[in-house]
Design a protein around this nucleic acid. Structure first.
Length: 577
RNA sequence: GCGCCUGUAGCUCAGUCGGAUAGAGCAUCCGCCUUCUAAGCGGACGGUCAGGGGUUCGAAUCCCUUCAGGCGCGCCA
């Protein structure tokens, strides 16, 4: 149930009835302050201006024609022409009961499901996943889960880098190990070390470097032995990724991998099509597209190179092929790219060219969902203590270890197995939540102490709030299903909680529209805080029977909302901590 | 040189596409455990929204400009 949408529709209709054009937005929002009610409509002033009317008079006309008597206690006009709406407690209680009886918290499936292709995670298989892959993976996964929950058809695309010159070096090193009859699978168990060793040989050994270049050519021309070696490498590297996904609780699986190499056979076709359309121009030996959209003031255009001198293709070519595949084979209505903000020019070029070349339908949405960099406390990109790039798997292990220190000091009597499980959930949740709760587009500072803190907008605080609710429910020893009595909204803390609970759908809608999970995080944090206040002020188990029944249902609603919300973020909950 | 992004409380961050008196958390200070988990709750302090112009009923938000920082810009991805 979406209060904002409901009110907005009703007010909009009343505005039209009062003489406003259909296109005039009611701009209904949650109120900024309690004295302005629960929701406020801000659209009157703008319309009044365009109609050359007195805004207060128009507001009065709108309110006269607006019947909210079933849901609102009071509707008033304030300031220059705001309409403030105060909802009825009884109505909130009734809505909450509907919410209780619905497995999906009364959030309907979208009326018109879209096919949404989501490109996220996309690590380079030459190396192990590092901290730089965290944001794309975690944010992309949260958006994917939210879109799916709303009823869209989501196609995950893990556009992994499995092609390119650095693979020649890696294959040459595999070959060398094999000739020395060394154990390759062991060497590949740590890809980071393997990569460095191969790079070392490449830089210092001329013969090795030449062999590496030969292997690139052999690989690209489809040499069988070479491909077999490459397959072996890719498989092991993908297995590493899958282990990290599993540890991280990310829904990506092998079936979602659509590697760069899969587009190889189509790259020449892409270039040919651009040629046929007269978009291609040879410049300094390379095949380029010059789009006037990317000209500077002097008229100089930054070209898109789609084929190198000598015939090789580039990532632009692959991305164009991917756009075509996503449109024609996957039948996307919307394609989301969770890729580093530094590539925004590249994507603008790809999107513009794709439209110009007819690779996508005009109505298909191509959206780059850029994200900022994870920084260290020094304000520079996050590194390990030794100064290297932090391996994601090591980072996640450290998170669990740090969580263990905290959890075990708070629960000295708890058994080891449960301690380990709690610290696993808390550790992983902390890392993910720290990332998800920040505005996607800005850089953020990675800080163990703040992300593992129980204070503020953190995973431990939310998990603690959830376990507190869970504990109440358990102690009540009531049959949850039999709790069907009325939910009474009376105390101010009950009202605040009831209102928050009714706003869940508004929060996830924002995540789906903008690809911004931090809206859901902010909502859940506010919900948890509102519950904590309610919990302190309103005794549940010791209350009179009907009050107890009502408050317990508020608690149950809180539990299911926290649990569902966190699950959409890809975060597990704990019954006890 | 050109382009994109960022600049909000001492620190870390929000700010619902122009709305009312700019909000949280940390830190600091003051309160609250014989009652459902004090890993909690309540309160206080804290702001030239980088600076300056402009647009209008109304600007942290839109436009121009200056300053500071980050990142991109033809054969890496």
């Amino acid at each position: 149930m979406n209060i904002q949408t409901l009110l907005n529709q009703r007010i909009q209709a009343a505005m039209v009835a009062a003489g406003a054009p259909e296109s005039a937005p009611a701009l209904t929002r949650q109120s900024a302050k309690v004295q302005f009610g629960d929701y406020q409509a801000n659209g009157i002033m703008g319309v009044a201006k365009s109609l050359k009317m007195n805004p207060r008079e128009l507001a009065q006309k709108v309110v006269d024609g607006l019947d909210l008597s079933d849901i609102a206690e009071k509707v008033e006009i304030a300031g220059p022409g705001f309409i403030n709406i105060f909802l009825k407690n009884a109505w909130l209680g009734k809505e909450l009961m509907a919410l209780r009886q619905s497995e999906r918290l009364d959030v309907p499936n979208v009326a018109a499901p879209e096919t949404v292709v989501v490109d996220y995670s996309s690590p380079n298989l030459a190396k192990e996943m590092h901290v730089g892959h965290l944001r794309s993976t975690v944010i992309g996964d949260a958006v994917v889960r939210t879109l799916e929950f709303l009823g869209h058809r989501v196609v995950r695309q893990n556009h992994v880098g499995d092609w390119g010159t650095q693979f020649g070096m890696l294959l040459a090193y595999m070959e060398r190990l094999r000739s020395e009859s060394a154990e390759i699978s062991m060497a590949l168990s740590d890809l980071e070390t393997f990569y460095r060793a191969a790079k070392g040989c490449f830089d210092e050994d001329e013969a090795f470097a030449n062999r590496a270049r030969e292997l690139v050519v052999a690989l690209q021309s489809g040499d069988k032995d070479c491909l077999a070696l490459w397959d072996e490498f890719i498989d092991i590297s993908l297995t590493h990724c899958e282990e990290t996904y599993k540890m991280l609780g990310v829904s990506l699986e092998r079936q979602h991998v659509m590697p760069e190499s899969a587009y190889n056979d189509d790259l020449q076709n892409v270039v040919n099509e651009l040629q046929e359309q007269g978009l291609l121009k040879e410049d300094q030996g390379a095949q380029c597209v010059f789009l006037e959209e990317f000209a500077n003031k002097e008229g100089e255009i930054t070209p898109i190179i789609v084929q190198k001198t000598g015939g090789g293709f580039l990532y632009s070519t692959t991305d164009l092929a991917a756009v075509r595949f996503r449109q024609h084979t996957l039948e996307a209505d919307r394609v989301l790219y969770f890729v580093d903000a530094r590539q925004s020019l590249h994507f603008q070029q790809i999107f513009t060219l794709s439209r110009k070349a007819g690779f996508v339908k005009p109505e298909t949405q191509l959206e780059h969902m850029p994200f900022g960099t994870v920084m260290g406390s020094d304000g520079k990109p996050f590194k390990t203590r030794s100064g290297g790039v932090a391996k994601l798997s090591s980072l996640l292990e450290e998170a669990q270890e740090r969580a263990y220190q905290l959890v075990s000091s708070k629960n000295p009597d708890m058994n080891e197995e449960e301690l380990r499980n709690i610290s696993r959930v808390v550790g992983i949740a902390s890392v993910k939540y720290a990332d998800l709760s920040k505005n996607r587009t800005s850089d953020y500072v990675f800080n163990w102490d703040t992300m593992l803190s129980f204070e503020g907008n953190t995973a431990p605080y939310l998990l603690y709030a959830y376990s507190r609710v869970a504990s109440i429910v358990k102690r009540s020893e009531m049959d949850i299903a039999s709790l069907t009595g009325e939910i009474q909204v009376e105390a101010s803390q009950e009202r605040a909680l009831a209102m928050k609970l009714c706003q869940f759908e508004e929060a996830i809608q924002q995540v789906a529209n903008d690809g911004m999970p931090h809206f859901l995080c902010a909502y859940l944090y506010e919900l948890a805080g509102t519950f904590m206040t309610f919990y302190e002020a309103c005794p549940i188990l010791n209350a009179e029977e009907d009050v107890k029944n009502s408050r317990l249902q508020l608690a149950l609603n809180t539990a299911s909302t926290l649990q569902l919300g966190l699950s959409l973020l890809g975060i597990e909950t704990l019954e006890r901590m």
